[in-house]
Design a protein around this nucleic acid. Structure first.
Length: 617
RNA sequence: GGCUCCGUAGCUUAAUGGAUAGAGCAUCUGACUACGGAUCAGAAGGUUAGAGGUUCGAGUCCUCUCGGAGUCACCA
């Protein structure tokens, strides 16, 4: 039982005995006491004043008195304006510290034997990963780690969008203009290599379109179809998709290629496989640098036809209905949503059909009772509909579905746009933050060079990546994120390196303890906690609950902020209290143990965020 | 227009319905003849977009208004 539960039960008992009315222990509000008041935990008394028929302070005093007499851990109390502040005994805190130090799983929950699948990244194979994927991957990864920490068995997966028009564009451009080049021959990372051909295709198309616009046919379309007052330029901008589908030579070739692929034409499939493999080797490198991994990959080329049988099933169950043209729909108007098509008139499936089929397949593959989809909030409506449909189909896993929706990453100048060349590439970004960490480190240590043999480069990589990862995980996922390149590489203030620095300080202490063979046993006799020490104890004590909350809400930012606050408290403690030069052996030993515990928790918490700790800074 | 999300200091942000809205950046002032200054302390900066309501108590819940974003494809 946690101390909070102990206090809740005791308060419920007190109210029952003192005022003769039963209250539910779980409803008793117990918070940690804010720093400016004395006490460790605070019971909110307001809900009991009616029952007690007394002023808040009087009722608080009575309940406090009861707690002090009946709960061993409660050493004292005070009441202010309806808040009962409880002070816990030094013995309680000593016990807690020792158990936190000796428990290698402090903050983690026991295995619960339940399985959860987390899907994230979902790349397209026609271009490299960008800033948006970075946020997605970090969320998916940290979420997986956090769910693991609270006891789940996590299967990390990725659905690779490896088929469709987009990859055909890259394929066609390579076929027509590639001259047999390969990533190896050009010394270019595979995903960038393929992405370059995609861009080439778009440029060639644009050129073709511009030439076409001068033709008599095009001018005829403009004369006939433009809206009044509409400029020629605006007309053709709007007309582009229609042109691509109906008049473009390249467009026709791409469609032909897609048809050949769908028909299983061996040459086309071979080319497709070749180009995708180039992309995958590039992705692997990026994922590796980012520190994320997957247990199972699903390919859209395998899943895009799934779900049709379920649609048939749903028709029989009456979940879906068929319109006169043969298309199949689901009617969600009774739940406040629209009607959605789930099968086209020609019998082919749509996006949601595929997702319905994939969900069932995954369930059969892994027997997961929960599935988390890490997908940007543009698709909120899609997932609302998908989950509702799966529920109506009576799928056994339908209640365990969660869309971890996150806001898009924008630049200070607005949304990233391929056309305007404002897309921030994931590889470039990581290289940038690490090189800035180098620059910064060199400013502190003139001996340092890029080829430093002392293994500093690993530490500096951790610092750069730590800055980036913390910057991206400290914000509530739901919020749209403004990515400011300058702030993302800040190494001071509320940043990853700030936290890493407190760990490095502790690391230094521990090495000295080792070297000098400091005896830590007197720590248990230390009872006169200083304010900074108490603050740290309270923060450490909260760690397990923070991990649980992060898991419950699928929100790693709780953990990021917790780590920052813990590091901040530690830095303050470091400044205010002498550790090695403490007044007594008891204080010295205690502070060293406290430091050790802080180091352990920081290491644990940051690792859940995918952030590594350097040995030196 | 319907639905969803967001609006907190110049900027980026925190706050299970609880106490004086907490940080960081930027600005200004300071700090131990070092247990490492990637640190610490302080100043200044807020009508939590606005108006009502519920509550002992509202940044948080409800209603409306304003502003921003997303979405409302037989695209994925």
């Amino acid at each position: 039982m946690t101390i909070i539960e102990t206090l809740q039960n005791a308060v419920a008992l007190a109210v029952g005995q003192l005022y003769g009315e039963t209250v539910e222990a779980g409803k008793v509000q117990v918070n940690t006491t804010p720093g400016e008041f004395t006490g460790d935990y605070t019971v909110v008394i307001f809900p009991f004043v009616k029952i007690a028929k007394k002023a808040p302070d009087a009722a608080g005093a009575e309940i406090g008195d009861f707690l002090q007499k009946n709960v061993a851990e409660v050493a004292g109390f005070n009441t202010i304006k309806g808040f009962l502040n409880l002070e816990l005994s030094p013995a309680f805190w000593q016990n807690f510290l020792q158990s936190a130090l000796t428990d290698p799983d402090f903050g983690r929950q026991p295995r619960n034997g339940r399985k959860v699948m987390v899907e994230y990244s979902s790349p397209n194979t026609n271009k490299p990963l960008h800033l948006g994927h970075v946020r997605n991957c970090l969320l998916g990864w940290t979420c997986s780690r956090i769910l693991d920490a609270v006891g789940y068995d996590v299967v990390k997966t990725q659905i690779v969008n490896d088929r469709g028009v987009a990859i055909c564009k890259s394929m066609l451009a390579w076929q027509k203009f590639g001259e047999g080049k390969t990533p190896e021959s050009e010394g270019v990372k595979g995903d960038h290599f393929v992405g370059d051909f995609y861009v080439m295709f778009e440029n060639k198309t644009k050129a073709e379109y511009e030439i076409w616009q001068q033709t008599d046919a095009a001018q005829g379309f403009f004369a006939e179809k433009h809206k009044p007052e509409q400029a020629e330029k605006d007309f053709f901008k709007e007309y582009k998709n229609k042109w691509f589908n109906e008049h473009s030579q390249l467009g026709a070739e791409v469609r032909e290629m897609l048809l050949k692929w769908e028909a299983g034409d061996p040459d086309t499939v071979a080319l497709w496989r070749q180009m995708n493999n180039w992309v995958y080797s590039g992705f692997d490198e990026t994922y590796g640098k980012l520190g994320v991994a997957f247990d199972k990959l699903y390919y859209e080329s395998d899943t895009y036809l799934l779900g049709k049988d379920i649609v048939e099933d749903g028709l029989k169950k009456g979940v879906f209905f068929r319109k006169d043209d043969g298309s199949v729909w689901v009617d969600l108007t009774d739940a406040g949503y629209d009607q959605k098509v789930v099968l086209r008139a020609d019998g082919t499936s749509v996006y949601i059909t595929q997702d319905i089929g994939t969900a069932r397949m995954r369930y059969h593959d892994f027997d997961c009772e929960k599935m988390v989809y890490v997908v940007a909030d543009e698709q909120n409506y899609h997932f609302v509909v998908l989950f509702e449909v799966l529920k109506r189909l009576g799928e056994p896993y339908a209640d365990g579905l969660h869309h971890l929706s996150y806001g898009l990453v924008e630049l200070p100048t607005g949304r990233m746009k391929t056309r305007e060349g404002t897309v921030v590439d994931a590889d470039d970004l990581m290289e940038e933050v690490v090189s800035l960490a180098w620059e910064n480190a060199r400013g502190r240590d003139s001996e340092l060079t890029d080829t430093d043999p002392a293994g500093r480069s690993e530490d500096i990589r951790k610092i750069g990546m730590g800055a980036l990862k913390f910057y991206m995980t400290k914000v509530n996922p739901r919020k749209k994120m403004i990515f400011n390149p300058e702030e993302s590489v800040d190494l001071q203030g509320q940043t990853g390196p700030y936290i890493q620095y407190s760990y490095v300080r502790i690391n230094g202490l521990m090495q000295r303890v080792e070297k000098e063979g400091v005896d830590l046993t007197p720590a248990k006799n230390y009872t006169d906690f200083q304010a900074e020490e108490k603050e740290l104890l309270k923060a450490l004590h909260e760690y397990p609950e923070v991990v649980l909350a992060a898991a419950r809400e699928y929100d790693p930012s709780h953990l990021a902020n917790f780590c920052y606050n813990l590091a901040k408290s530690y830095h303050r403690f470091w400044h205010e209290q002498s550790i090695f030069n403490a007044d007594s052996p008891e204080a010295k030993a205690f502070r060293l143990q406290l430091s050790k515990a802080v180091g352990q928790v920081l290491l644990s918490g940051m690792s859940l965020l995918g952030i590594e700790m350097p040995a030196r800074m």
